[in-house]
C-alpha cells in the first residue's frame, strides 16, 4: 500500500520557500508560488490512488496541547468528517480558487517569502486521501 505522508506539523518547511521547485504528477516542474488549483486536481487524477478532498475550515483556535501552534478543525469530503490538526501559524494551506493561505500571512512572508491570504473559517482547502479501491 502507498505510504502515508507526514502531517503538516512535521513536514519539511523548505517545501514552502518561495522559489522551491515542485514536481507535479504529470512530471511538470513549477515554483511553489505559481501553483494553481488545477495543478493539484490534475496531479491527483494522473497519480492514481490519491484523491483530492475539499476540507472546509470550521474552527481556528490556539492549540491547548501545543503552545504556539494553531488548532485547525476541518470538515472533510462528502461525509463531512471532522479532523483537527495542529500547525504552526505560518503553515500555508492551498485554498480552492484562491491559493496559499495561512493563519499568519506576515510570518509566512517572513519565514518563507511566500505571499499568502489570511486563512479563515469557511475557506475550503485542498487535502488528499487515499482513493478507495474500485
Amino acid at each position: 500500500p502507498p505510504s502515508l505522508a507526514p502531517a503538516p506539523a512535521s513536514s519539511n518547511p523548505s517545501h514552502f520557500m518561495k522559489g522551491a521547485i515542485i514536481q507535479l504528477a504529470t512530471g511538470e516542474l513549477k515554483r511553489v508560488e505559481d501553483l494553481q488549483t488545477h495543478d493539484f486536481m490534475r496531479s491527483a487524477e494522473v497519480s492514481g490512488g490519491l484523491k483530492i478532498d475539499s476540507s472546509m475550515v470550521v474552527d481556528v483556535r490556539a492549540s491547548q496541547q501545543r503552545p504556539g501552534l494553531v488548532s485547525l478543525q476541518f470538515t472533510v469530503g462528502e461525509q463531512q468528517s471532522k479532523v483537527t490538526i495542529d500547525v504552526p501559524p505560518e503553515h500555508p494551506f492551498f485554498v480552492f480558487g484562491q491559493g496559499w493561505s495561512s493563519c499568519s500571512p506576515e510570518r509566512t512572508a517572513q519565514l518563507y517569502g511566500l505571499a499568502c491570504h489570511h486563512l479563515q473559517v469557511g475557506d475550503v482547502c485542498v487535502s488528499i486521501t487515499l482513493q478507495p479501491p474500485p
Partner: peptide, 25 residues
Amino acid sequence: NVEPRSVPVFPWHSLVPFLEPSHLG
C-alpha cells in the same frame, strides 16, 4: 571545476495535508 549544485525538487503531494482514512471514519 565547479560542481553544479543539485536543486531539490519536492513532490506536489508534500504540500497539502494527507488525511489518513482512519481520521475520516
